[in-house]
Design a binder for these strands. Structure first.
Lengths: 130, 130
DNA sequence: CATGGGGCTTCCAGTCGCCGGAAGGTCAAG
DNA sequence: CTTGACCTTCCGGCGACTGGAAGCCCCATG
C-alpha cells in the first residue's frame, strides 16, 4: 500500500503520514522505486493514531498509546491513567472556555451593536467596570 | 516606564511585550540608553490586549479591537460583530471538547484499570466496537 | 516511442504566540 | 570598582502540521 492508499484508508492526509514517519510513529518499508510501502498493520496503527488525535490526545500520548496497544501484556491501568490525565485536561479546557463564554457573552449581550460609538465590549476590555 | 514596569503593570511578561512591539501592536519610544519607554496610554493598550487575549481573542482580533478602541467614532456594531464571531468559535470549540469528553469518558468508565491486559480504551481507539 | 498527467519523493518555509538562552550594554547600591 | 539586576538584540525551538518547489516514476494514449 503506498501513501495515497494509506491516506484513503485512514482519512489522514499524505503530508501528515509523512510527518508521522519523520517523527517515528510509523516506519514503513520502501518499494524498489522509493515509494513508502505500508503493511495492513501499519495502516491499523495510523488509523489508531487518527482516532486518538480526534479525541485530542497529543502526539506523544499517541506514541505511548500505540506502544501500549502493541504490547499485548501491558496492564490496562496504565492506559486508563493516560486517558484520565487527558480527560482532566479536556475538562479544564472546557471550564476555561466556558468562563470565556460567560464573560464575553455578557459583554456582547450588553452591547447594543448599532452605529453609535458607545460600546460595553470595548469598555470591558479596557478594564472599565461599567 | 521601562519594560519591567510595563510588565508589572499589565501582567504580561517582558518577552511578550517585546513580541507585541515586533508585530506592531505597540510602538514605544526609546530612552537615550536604548530602553523602551512606555506611555500610560501604551500601558493601557497592553492591558487591553492582555484582557482580550485572556478572553481568547487572536492577536489579529486584538489588533482590530485595539484599532476600534482608539477610534472614538467607530460604530459599536463592528465591535459586536467581531466579538460574536469569536463567541461562536468558543462555542464550537466547547462543543468539540464536550464530544471528546463524552467519548473518552465512556471509554475510561468501561476500563477497569487493573493489571489485566484487556482494555476497552485501546479497543475503542483500534476501532473495535466492543 | 514520445508525451502528458497524476502520484510519488525530498526539502524548505511558514503557521501562531510566544519562551529560553546567549552575548553584551546600563544602572544603582555598597 | 564591583556586583547584580536590569535592559538590549538575535537565534532557535515548541506542536502538529501545511503549502509549495523541484524533480522522479508510472501508466495510458496517440
Amino acid at each position: 500500500m503506498n501513501i495515497g492508499e494509506a491516506a484513503e484508508a485512514t482519512g489522514l492526509p499524505p503530508k501528515t503520514i509523512r510527518y508521522y514517519e519523520e517523527i517515528g510513529l510509523v516506519r514503513p518499508a520502501r518499494s524498489a522505486n522509493g515509494y513508502r510501502a505500508f503493511t495492513d498493520r501499519q495502516i491499523a496503527s495510523l488509523a489508531f493514531v487518527a482516532r486518538a488525535r480526534d479525541l485530542g490526545f497529543s502526539i506523544e500520548d499517541c506514541r505511548a498509546l500505540l506502544g501500549l496497544y502493541e504490547d499485548r501484556s501491558r496492564a490496562s491501568a496504565e492506559v486508563k491513567a493516560l486517558a484520565q490525565g487527558h480527560l482532566g485536561r479536556i475538562e479544564r479546557k472546557i471550564a476555561e472556555l466556558e468562563a470565556m463564554r460567560e464573560t464575553l457573552g455578557e459583554l456582547v449581550r450588553r452591547c447594543h451593536g448599532d452605529d453609535r460609538p458607545d460600546c460595553p465590549i470595548l469598555k470591558g476590555l479596557a478594564g472599565e467596570d461599567a
